[in-house]
Amino acid sequence: MTKRIPLALVGVGKIARDQHIPSIAGGADFELAAAVSRHGKVDGVDNFENFDAFLTARPDVKVVSLCTPPEVRFDMAKKAIAAGRDVLMEKPPATTLGEAEALSALAAEAGVTLFATWHSRFALGVEPARLWLSDKTIKTVSIVWKEDVRRWHPGQAWIWEPGGFGVFDPGINALSILTAVVPGPILVERSTLEFPENKKQPIAASIAMRTVDGAPVSAEFDWRQEGPQTWDITIETDQGLLRLSKGGSELYIGDALHTAGPDREYAGIYERFGALIRARESDTDYQPLRLVADSFLCGERKVVASFED
């Protein structure tokens, strides 16, 4: 068995504990050697409260996984790249396209691996959906992505601040699947963004888009859905209907279930990261982030009732 690569986890919050730590432990490529967080700690590894202190103290740890909120990620990624470390970035990879593109250029110049992850692309139904669609003509695409922010982001005030993305934090998952399975660019035409009067980021969004060939694409995002959660993408083609449900974990062709199984999204991320490091390559597709940016540029702002979470 190949020796595991020492890795530092930066940002020990809910997503790190729920997904990153188990996926690192369950995979074959990496060994968690250090953690960096102002508030959380991981048992059995070196823990640091300061990222600069980690870089100085552990030059042997050549790989970092950045799970912090996006607004602080650029400076950390820049320092890690300058120190010759390979970098994985949780989604969304950066606060702006400018930051994201700058990091890609810095990584290329330094010769390190940079991986901008989109975990929903590793859902079980996504790659089979891409393959099925590859020889079809797409007629329409409909995205309905509605969930309860209180359930999935409890106490995370940063998501409502500038750079926090609001409902686009989960919505960008749908856009990452869209841009993975539909060939060619997706173009935003217009959007309506609903801002609670006491928040700085939207709680809901309605987006009209089109494929480069002109097929209409609609997306409805909402963070106020209680009860059953909805993560569906339906694509009508010249040869029938395709539906990705439950965030891409279930694929239906027509009415028949084609692909389903247990969640391996983050396991897939770390397998991909290991392969990129071995090949000394990077993977930095920022198309989902561009669609978010374009939705703000084309967006009509609508103020709605205050929201308390």
Rank of each mutant, 00 (worst) to 15 (best):
M1S: 12
I5C: 10
L7F: 09
L9H: 07
G13S: 07
K14L: 14
K14E: 15
I15F: 12
R17K: 15
S23L: 03
I24D: 06
A25I: 00
D29E: 10
F30H: 04
E31M: 10
A34N: 08
R38F: 08
K41F: 02
D46W: 01
N47M: 04
N50R: 15
F51Q: 06
A53S: 14
T56H: 14
K62A: 14
K62V: 05
K62S: 11
V64I: 08
V64M: 04
L66Q: 00
E71N: 05
E71P: 12
R73Q: 09
I81T: 08
A82V: 05
A83E: 12
A83G: 10
R85P: 10
V87G: 07
L88A: 11
G98R: 05
A100Y: 00
A102R: 09
S104T: 15
A105R: 15
L106N: 05
A107E: 13
A108G: 15
V112N: 04
A116F: 04
A116C: 03
T117R: 02
H119V: 07
F122H: 15
F122L: 00
A129C: 13
S134D: 15
S134N: 12
I138M: 00
I138S: 05
V141E: 04
V144Y: 14
K146D: 02
D148W: 00
W152H: 15
A157M: 13
W158E: 14
E161S: 13
E161L: 10
F165C: 08
G171K: 07
S176L: 03
S176A: 14
A180I: 01
P183S: 05
L187V: 13
L193F: 04
P196F: 03
E197A: 05
E197L: 00
N198S: 01
K199L: 15
I203Q: 06
A204W: 04
A205I: 09
A205Y: 03
S206Y: 04
I207E: 14
I207G: 12
V212K: 11
G214L: 07
E220M: 06
R224D: 12
R224A: 12
E226C: 01
E226Q: 14
P228M: 02
W231E: 15
I233Q: 11
Q239T: 02
L242E: 03
R243S: 14
S245A: 15
K246W: 04
G247N: 10
G248I: 07
G248F: 11
E250K: 14
D255M: 05
D255W: 07
A256Y: 00
L257E: 07
H258G: 06
H258C: 05
A260W: 02
A267W: 01
S282N: 03
T284F: 01
Q287F: 00
L289M: 03
L291V: 10
V292P: 03
A293M: 08
L297Y: 13
C298P: 02
E300D: 10
V303F: 01
V304G: 10
A305Y: 00
F307V: 13
F307N: 09
F307E: 11
E308I: 09
